[in-house]
Simulated scan of single mutants.
Amino acid sequence: MPKSRDWTTATDARTLCPRMARGGGGQDGRGRHGRCGGRGAGPPARRINDAPLRAALENRRGRVFDEALSGVCYTHGVRLGLAGDPLPRWLPTAPRWAREALRTGHASGTAISGRGDQAPA
């Protein structure tokens, strides 16, 4: 069976910046930050893949509460908030508990990243 990629690895620092995984810290030989892990402009981060979560929740407002899936929603919201990405467009069609978990996680991730004052109300 082929190894499937987990959709949560899109924000892993080792995936986004291979030099950080090797211990380079994202700096070039002169102590300046290079293309990743620093202040300089680098390649855009990959979009967080929410397809499995969307497939489970989109257009399913009547879905009963699922504690495990609620935790996944919260974690996905945190990742979106940390990345500065907006909440997904399919969110209004998700169950209430999933919407609340995603919004709470997004608010937490946004606050952690220091962009809490820039977030829309």
Rank of each mutant, 00 (worst) to 15 (best):
M1Q: 10
P2D: 13
K3S: 12
K3W: 09
K3I: 11
R5W: 12
D6N: 15
W7G: 04
W7E: 12
A10L: 07
T11D: 14
T11N: 14
D12I: 09
D12A: 14
T15F: 12
L16C: 09
L16H: 06
C17G: 03
P18K: 13
R19C: 15
R19G: 12
R22H: 13
R22I: 09
G24W: 00
G25F: 01
G25E: 01
Q27I: 01
D28H: 05
R30T: 14
G31Q: 04
G31M: 04
H33R: 04
H33C: 03
G34R: 03
R35N: 07
G37E: 01
G38K: 01
R39E: 14
R39P: 05
A41D: 06
G42N: 00
P43N: 09
P44R: 15
A45P: 03
R46S: 13
R46N: 08
R47C: 05
R47T: 09
R47K: 11
R47L: 07
I48E: 00
I48T: 02
I48K: 00
N49R: 13
D50V: 12
L53S: 02
R54G: 03
A55C: 06
E58C: 10
E58G: 07
N59F: 11
G62Y: 10
F65T: 09
F65H: 14
D66E: 14
E67H: 11
E67Q: 13
L69A: 10
S70K: 09
T75E: 15
T75I: 11
V78D: 00
V78P: 00
R79W: 07
L80M: 04
L82M: 11
L87K: 01
P88V: 05
R89Q: 11
L91C: 08
P92I: 07
T93M: 11
P95G: 04
P95W: 00
A98S: 06
A98E: 01
R99A: 09
E100D: 12
L102R: 03
A107G: 08
I112N: 11
I112D: 14
S113Y: 12
G116E: 12
G116S: 14
G116Y: 10
D117E: 15
D117R: 15
A119P: 05
A121C: 06
